[in-house]
């Protein structure tokens, strides 16, 4: 496949690569960022990367399978719930510790 062909004919693999990149980005965010809020956002990014995959698979499925698109709604709901719980927890620990740096929370270990 010539290079410009790959660039111009956007297909399933492009979406998959995009979602993989986004997922990795989110993953790295969780691994590397120190701020708890950013970590929460990174998780959201990972979930949304998955959404792209679902939609892409659904769109390019030979049988026009719509399940994937429905699943995105499930995922979005869960993501919202998670965000709510996550932010609540973040607030709580901020109240308790006055700290948003994740490296601060290393009391439990060993």
């Amino acid at each position: 496949m010539p290079i410009n062909d790959a660039l111009l004919n956007v297909g399933l693999s492009h979406y998959l690569i995009l979602s993989a990149l986004l997922f990795t980005l989110g993953l790295l965010g969780v691994l590397l960022r120190r701020n708890v809020i950013v970590i929460l956002m990174s998780i959201e990014l990972m979930l949304n990367a998955v959404n792209i995959t679902f939609v892409a698979f659904s769109r390019y499925s030979p049988t026009a399978n719509m399940d994937g698109q429905a699943m995105v709604f499930f995922v979005m709901t869960i993501a919202a719930a998670e965000a709510a719980v996550g932010l609540a927890l973040a607030t709580t620990i901020f109240k308790k510790f006055r700290e948003v740096n994740i490296r601060y929370f290393e009391h439990l270990k060993g």
Binding site: V30, F54, A56, G68
Partner: peptide, 24 residues
């Protein structure tokens, strides 16, 4: 709780990604 939450969500995302690939 916060540790559990972050790691749990992280794992959930991985899990979900897996589901998406299986779906595909």
């Amino acid at each position: 709780a916060f540790k559990y939450f972050v790691l749990g969500s992280f794992a959930s995302a991985v899990f979900l990604y897996g589901i998406a690939l299986l779906y595909g």
